[in-house]
Structure formats: C-alpha cells, structure tokens
C-alpha cells in the first residue's frame, strides 16, 4: 500500500517537453491521490495532447486495455507524464520502452498493506515475528530505531526522541507486559539480533 505526493510544479513543468500525454491513476485514490491539485496543475502544462484518467495501471493487462483507444495519440507523443505511485510509472515505462515516461509523484510507504484503509498498527514484515515477547506490540515498527532488546534511553516522559508526539515503543511494551503480568518476558536470555539475510520463515513439519 502506497501513498503519493505531487512533485513540485516547477519539476513537473520541466518534465513536460514536446507533445505530452498525461496518465492519471485513480485506483488508490481512496488511499491518497491529490486529485484536485493534480487537475489544477495539469491545466497549466504546455503541449498536453491528451489526459487519460483511469485506475489500477499497476496491472499491465488493465493498463493496455485502458490505453488501447489512445494508441495513436500516445504514439505521437514525445513525453508521457504519469501521476501514480512508482509501480504505475514503471508499468507504463515498461509498456513504452522507447518513450520518455516521467513520474510526477513521490511515493511513500503506508502502514498496513492491504485494503484501502491505512492502519494504525504496522508490521515490518521481518519474517521473525517478535510479538510473542512484546505483548503484541511490534518493536520493529513501534520503536523508531527498531530496537529488539529494549528502549534506547532517548525517550522523555515516555515520548520518543525522534518524534515527541510518538510514544516510546519499548515503554509501551513494558507497560503492556506489566498489565498482562508478563514482565518476565523482558528478562534477558540471549540478545535478539535480526536476520536480514533470509527473513522467510520455514514451513513447519509434523
């Protein structure tokens, strides 16, 4: 799940060279797409021969289907400007390898990776779930530094040093375990160190 932000107007204006076709993707609009800002910006661009607004251009088959009737105008274009996440831009770029395909957005990650609704909870997809020792609060995402062995000591009044509006993840974990009467989980047995090499868990066998 991704969210996008428009690049600056100057950047986009500099990209629109020659005959320009614009492709807007509204597939993840309910997540985030600056529809009105993009509309306004596109009105002022020079050389625009066609604006195509469609959805789910990350799906190559759908993209082809949606662009079919615009084949001529795309073939005649010098530049294709894509307003979508990075996946959409690359799908278009792969479809028109010889064309200058430019991205007009920057893409950001979003906590939660299914559905439309961004979630408050977050999962780092680390492949070695730590939630069992932490009262169900993920240290990878709840701690700014993704520490595994307790807090860094940088929190002030329970708030993170990186963002004073964010609670210290490890203090949350400690309080949760305290509440569950599971503070023993905090007791040190061996250091926890992440395995970045092969995060995929193995299948269990019986």
């Amino acid at each position: 799940m991704l969210i996008t932000q428009l690049k600056s107007k100057e950047t986009i204006e500099a990209l629109a060279q020659g005959k320009t076709v614009i492709i807007n993707c509204h597939g993840c609009k309910e997540v985030y797409f600056a529809e009105h800002e993009a509309d306004e910006l596109q009105k002022d661009l020079n050389g625009v021969t066609q604006i195509i607004t469609t959805d789910y251009i990350c799906n190559p088959d759908n993209l082809k289907l949606q662009l079919k009737k615009h084949t001529d105008v795309i073939n005649a274009a010098d530049t294709i400007l894509v307003f979508s996440c990075g996946v959409g831009v690359q799908t278009v770029a792969a479809l028109f390898e010889g064309k200058k395909v430019y991205s007009c957005c920057d893409t950001y990650p979003l906590p939660g990776f299914q559905g439309v609704t961004p979630l408050n909870v977050d999962c780092g997809q680390c492949g070695e779930c730590y939630l069992n020792g932490t009262g169900g609060i993920c240290p990878i995402t709840a701690c700014s530094k993704s520490l595994l062995n307790g807090q860094c000591g940088g929190a002030k009044e329970g708030m993170c040093e990186v963002d004073k509006e964010m609670e210290c993840g490890w203090e949350r974990i400690y309080r949760k375990l305290e509440k569950l009467n599971k503070l023993d989980n905090m007791k040190y047995e061996a250091p926890k160190v992440r395995n970045y090499h092969n995060p995929n868990a193995e299948e269990p066998t019986i």
């Binding site: 530094k145 520490l147 940088g154």
Partner: peptide
C-alpha cells in the same frame, strides 16, 4: 545505541541500528 540521525546535522542520513546496545555488548 546512539541518538537518532535526524537529531543531528545530517538528518538525511540512513539510520542503521542493525545492533543495539544489548546486542553490541553481546557481540
């Protein structure tokens, strides 16, 4: 463990935190 990168004069830097104080002591 160390302060976070954004608190200093190179806020754009990649924060590492591969280990933390406990695992570093262990190492």
């Amino acid at each position: 463990t160390g302060d976070y990168t954004t608190l200093g004069d190179h806020p754009q830097a990649k924060p590492v935190f591969d280990l933390d104080s406990v695992s570093l002591i262990h190492a």
